[in-house]
Write a protein that binds this DNA or RNA. Structure first.
Length: 423
RNA sequence: GGAGAGAUGGCAGAGUGGUCGAAUGCGGCGGAUUCGAAAUCCGCUAUACGGGUUACCGUAUCGGGGGUUCGAAUCCCCCUUUCUCCGCCA
């Protein structure tokens, strides 16, 4: 959601922006619905003023005939208000439905393009290993080392679920510990978050919890959903609040399970742990003043890079193209890790500056130096998306004898430095 | 899951149909007093939207939604949520 006044004043620019981002939205319709809504509100206000004045006249004692006349007038006003309110409701709903589809503005440095292929590679970090043996992918390794069980999970839970077993189970916990410790030492307050949130919060963050295209599991007979990311519950913490300027920036790091229906996603590119219905994730979230958000995005990207350098996983940094940003993001960086099983890079983190797009929907503001309430800027970034990091570790650090090396920084949390072949 | 009691401004807390955007206290801001401070006294002290675009005016908001009424913080219905007690449970 953007400031409607800004949209009204920049109709052409908003149309170009939506086109650039591959978003079908009727800007003219948004503006005309808003104008009609304002007209109706003005009429309603005048009618209500009349009603209030009419009622005020009846406060004291008066002739019954005079009172009856006023009551008749009041009834007449009441009917007019009711009719207009009906129309207002309809127009307001239509307006909101269309306005919600307007994407955020786009940072000037974002490469224009339709898909992820148009994203700009900023740099590659780390050395891609040349194997002197035939490397296995993580599915093969997982089976050989008794680390991952897809078959049992599919009979117990359904396809695209998995059991992590033995060292892999401990590796998940180690990654979560490592991520939470690492980032909380940088001033991010650690949170364990609910895995369920209300649909209204999902919408505020920019997810669409309903409809055929949705990637969200909803809970039958409630207005609650399984979260797709802790971004939802971390962002929801301050919904409706007016924050003090001195409290900003607010930096949080949260752990949650993430649930995604992944409707229609299947095939070789998403096999194994790469795209699953449930996974664990550590996520950063920042609420800050508007002028700080550009720099905060670089901070988040920097932390992500530091982590993958420490883990020793080769990666590249992408400046995500306009068509692949999603509605809330103003600018987004993805880190893609080298995954030998794909013989390609695969997305491992994503950090976005959503400016005031989410804060408008969630109504999160701060009182600025002039005493005015201003919308905050909100950003998020992945620390550890557990299954994809496990893929990267298993595939990059496998040895000819079938064992897998554990990155040094994780050893304090795993308690072992190697996963050995089972007898 | 059952029973009961609540939800009012930054906080505490009055208010059971029109004189209530809301008493009073605390807190906050400004001023008086003082060499200065404390104490005391006086005044001000919610948000959003819309119109004048300055000192103003209007509308809405007393947990949320719906209803009754000429008129609702106040009456009715539904929901949410908090507390207390009981049950169940890791």
């Amino acid at each position: 959601m953007l400031d409607i006044k800004f949209i009204k004043d920049n109709v052409e620019m908003m149309k170009e922006n939506a086109a650039k981002r591959n978003v079908a939205v009727d800007i003219d319709k948004v503006v005309s619905l808003y104008n009609r809504k304002t007209e109706i509100q003005f009429e309603l206000d005048s009618l209500r003023q009349k009603r209030n004045e009419n009622a005020a006249k009846m406060k004291g004692k008066m002739e019954q005939a005079e009172r009856n006349a006023l009551i008749e007038e009041g009834k007449d006003i009441k009917a007019k208000i009711a009719a207009l309110e009906e129309e207002e409701k309809k127009v307001a709903a239509d307006y909101l439905a269309e306005a919600m589809n307007v994407p955020n503005l786009t940072h000037p440095s974002v490469p224009v393009g339709k898909t992820d292929k148009d994203s700009q590679e900023l740099r590659k970090v780390g050395t891609i290993r040349k194997f002197d043996f035939e490397p296995k992918n993580h599915v093969q390794l997982g089976e050989a080392l008794d680390l991952i069980d897809f078959d049992t999970a599919s009979s117990v839970s359904g396809q695209k679920f998995y059991y992590l077993k033995n060292e892999a189970a401990l590796l998940e916990l180690a990654l979560v510990q490592y991520g939470m410790q690492k980032v909380s030492k940088k001033g991010f307050k650690p949170h364990l978050t609910p895995d369920i949130a209300k649909a209204s919060i999902l919408e505020g963050i920019g997810f669409n919890p309903r409809g055929e295209e949705t990637n969200i599991y909803s809970i039958e007979n409630t207005d609650q959903c399984l979260v797709g990311t802790a971004e939802i519950t971390l962002g929801g913490i301050n919904a409706g609040k007016i924050l003090n300027e001195s409290d900003l920036p607010i930096k949080m790091v949260g752990f949650s399970h993430c649930f995604r229906t992944e409707a229609g996603a299947a095939g070789q590119a998403t096999k194994g742990l790469y795209r699953v219905h449930q996974f664990s994730k550590v996520e950063m979230f920042i609420i800050c003043k508007p002028e700080e958000s550009d720099a905060m995005l670089e901070t988040l990207r920097g932390i992500e890079e530091e982590i993958y350098q420490e883990l020793g996983i080769p990666y590249r940094v992408l400046n995500v193209s306009s068509g692949d940003l999603g509605n809330p993001a103003y600018k987004k960086y993805d880190l893609e890790a080298w995954m030998p099983g794909r013989n390609d890079y695969g997305e491992i983190t994503s950090t976005s500056n959503c400016t005031d797009y989410q804060s408008r929907r969630l109504n999160i503001r701060f009182k600025n130096a002039d005493g005015k309430n201003q919308f905050v800027h909100m950003l998020n970034g992945t620390v550890i998306a557990v299954p994809r990091v496990i893929i990267s570790i298993m595939e990059n650090f496998q040895n000819a004898d079938g064992s897998i090396d554990i990155p040094k920084v994780l050893v304090p949390w795993t308690g072992f430095d190697k996963i050995l072949p089972k007898k």
